[in-house]
């Protein structure tokens, strides 16, 4: 009975991550890279995940794809995709979802492509892997896909190798590869970081179009909160493996609650004007992920901290439509 209520309440959730923790075994010992992260993605959502380098964004994305590197593994929590627990699926079942129901776009288009295979074949491969179509059909579908990501002369370009494309064009190919089967969920991990500003805008436009045309939900990962604010309806702010604030983009931008979110907004240049003037870099460094965190992970860098901050870790609690994890600015105050 309770299950049914829960189920109906979540019925538009495409992705539900619950209390997910991920450890990585490294030379410096076990790193607790993701620490009890929960968030939901509904149909058609564009949700941004932001945070400084090393806060665990890519690890989270790869965990959803079940593509974590050897040594990295979920140690708690669950990942539900359309009601199925991804962590419980067999490798074969998981493979059927990847590239088909869940597509991923990676950061570095130069490293993401096989240099020895034509662009068209690489796009067609995603279709072949899932649709059981002949090579001829997948080849023409690949050309269509390349046209839809606005690659000029797609029929000619399909026969060319990655090194014959510019960075922006390569990223379009990577997007075409990740989305060729119109997945319900697209995870884009810093899809524009390697590109220059004008090309960035084009790639964002493309993802926007995909979201409106096919209704695919998008999880957009970036360390650039300004970029996220342009593109996403909701934002999840991560710090040292935890979510510290979550809410609608407009709320968070107009009134950030968490001191880290405020600092992040001040530290990132606005998209168009590259004015370095108003920028305030965040002082200090994120904590060591190998240690068990006592108190708020941001305490060492926070100007609003109180005594309690170093004693116990603030939970993420709802404040109206948003969630904040802070003893001072959160719902506890």
């Amino acid at each position: 009975m309770l299950n049914q209520i829960r189920h109906s309440a979540d019925h538009d959730a495409i992705l539900s991550v619950e209390n997910l923790s991920i450890d990585i075994e490294s030379k410096r010992g076990v790193l607790h890279v993701v620490r009890g992260v929960s968030f939901h993605v509904n149909a058609g959502d564009r949700i941004g995940v932001v945070g400084e380098s090393g806060c665990g964004k890519s690890t989270l994305a790869l965990a959803i794809m079940r593509l974590l590197a050897p040594g990295a593994a979920p140690v708690g929590g669950s990942i539900q995709f359309l009601g199925t627990d991804l962590l419980a699926l067999s490798e074969t079942e998981m493979r059927r979802l990847r590239g088909n129901e869940i597509g991923m776009v990676f950061q570095d288009p130069a490293a993401s492509l096989n240099p020895m295979m034509t662009a068209g074949r690489q796009v067609g491969e995603t279709i072949e892997a899932h649709k059981g179509v002949s090579r001829k059909i997948s080849a023409s579908a690949a050309v269509d896909m390349m046209r839809s990501v606005k690659i000029p002369e797609p029929a000619v370009r399909a026969g060319q190798y990655p090194h014959q494309f510019s960075g922006g064009m390569r990223q379009r190919i990577v997007i075409a590869m990740g989305t060729a089967n119109t997945p319900k969920l697209i995870i884009a991990d810093e899809p524009t970081t390697a590109l220059d500003v004008t090309v960035q805008a084009q790639v964002i436009e493309l993802l926007e179009k995909m979201n409106t045309d096919t209704g695919s939900s998008i999880v957009f990962i970036s360390h650039n909160i300004a970029l996220v604010s342009e593109f996403c309806s909701r934002v999840v702010v991560m710090y040292a493996g935890r979510i510290v604030e979550e809410g609608s983009t407009s709320d968070i931008f107009s009134r950030p609650y968490h001191p880290y979110t405020s600092a992040l907004i001040k530290s990132v240049p606005p998209l168009d004007e590259r004015l370095a003037d108003g920028l305030v870099p965040i002082e200090g460094r994120p904590p060591n992920l190998a240690s068990k965190q006592v108190g708020c992970a941001f305490a060492a860098r926070c100007s609003s901290k109180i005594e309690k901050c170093t004693q116990s870790s603030p939970p993420l609690v709802a404040m109206g439509p948003r969630k904040v994890a802070c003893w001072v600015t959160g719902a506890h105050s």
Partner: peptide, 26 residues
């Protein structure tokens, strides 16, 4: 171990195909 292999997995390409058509060719 290269990045493009992770992307092949993300596309849902089968392991044997990744090994023989992509990795072996390199």
């Amino acid at each position: 171990r290269q990045d493009f292999v992770t992307l092949l997995r993300a596309k849902g390409v089968s392991e044997s195909r990744i090994r023989l058509q992509h990795i072996l060719r390199h």
